[in-house]
């Protein structure tokens, strides 16, 4: 890790608000992407990102190694997103039934809908990797850092994710060729 980065994380852990705000600027999109990967909803993902940042600030002293700060942030976001996800599942059936239709208004095409359902079918880690890649155009190294993966594992995950999406969307893709 870059020494200046490291220093920044160290300062944030020790309660330097400015350093922490800097981290918010650079990392909140990552957190959002991770949360989106789990929840598939922008509003909820944004809430989760916000909650994660506040929680991270309050419990920052738990991090011993500044190198692990970004991965730790990502873990918080993942856990928070899962919490929200779990709560959502306990919502009564009638509400749940209307939900999938409502957030996708007319402006989204049929392809979009298919894409979203294909995304929803992916494992959570795959989704997170995809969102990080396509939201933030992050390079593999940064994604690895955020999700705590090795290069090989990340390549495999992204490849499998793309393929499984491709297979599900094949009927929709062929006309475009």
């Amino acid at each position: 890790m870059d020494p200046s980065e490291r220093e920044k994380y160290q300062a944030a852990i020790h309660g330097d608000r400015e350093a922490f705000e800097m981290i918010i600027r650079t990392h909140s999109r990552t957190l959002f992407a991770i949360a989106y990967g789990v929840l598939q909803s922008r509003e909820e993902a944004e809430d989760v990102a916000q909650d994660s940042l506040v929680k991270a600030w309050k419990t920052r002293w738990r991090v011993r190694d500044p190198e692990k700060f970004p991965a730790w942030l990502a873990t918080i976001a993942r856990h928070k997103a899962h919490d929200v996800f779990r709560k959502r599942r306990t919502v009564p059936l009638s509400e749940q039934a209307t939900e999938p239709i409502e957030p996708e208004p007319a402006n989204t095409s049929a392809l979009d809908q298919k894409l979203h359902s294909a995304l929803a079918a992916l494992p959570e880690l795959h989704r997170a990797a995809l969102t990080l890649r396509y939201f933030e155009e992050m390079d593999y190294r940064t994604i690895e850092n955020s999700l705590g993966l090795t290069n090989g594992a990340l390549r495999g995950i992204l490849g499998r994710a793309l393929t499984s999406m491709r297979k599900q969307l094949r009927p929709a893709l062929t006309p475009m060729d």
Binding site: E21, I24, R25, S28, R29, F32, Y36, R42, E46, A49, Q50, L53, V54, W57, L111, D112, L115, L130, T131, Y134, F135, L162, M165, R166, L169, L173, M176, D177
Partner: peptide, 28 residues
């Protein structure tokens, strides 16, 4: 390649708006 393009196009729409960081900071 097609898949990649579709993903890029679709997910780019879902990307948070430029004011996102500001909102995060304010909320924090």
């Amino acid at each position: 390649k097609t898949m990649n393009k579709i993903l890029e196009e679709t997910l780019a729409q879902e990307k948070p708006d430029p004011a996102f960081e500001q909102r995060m900071l304010a909320g924090f």
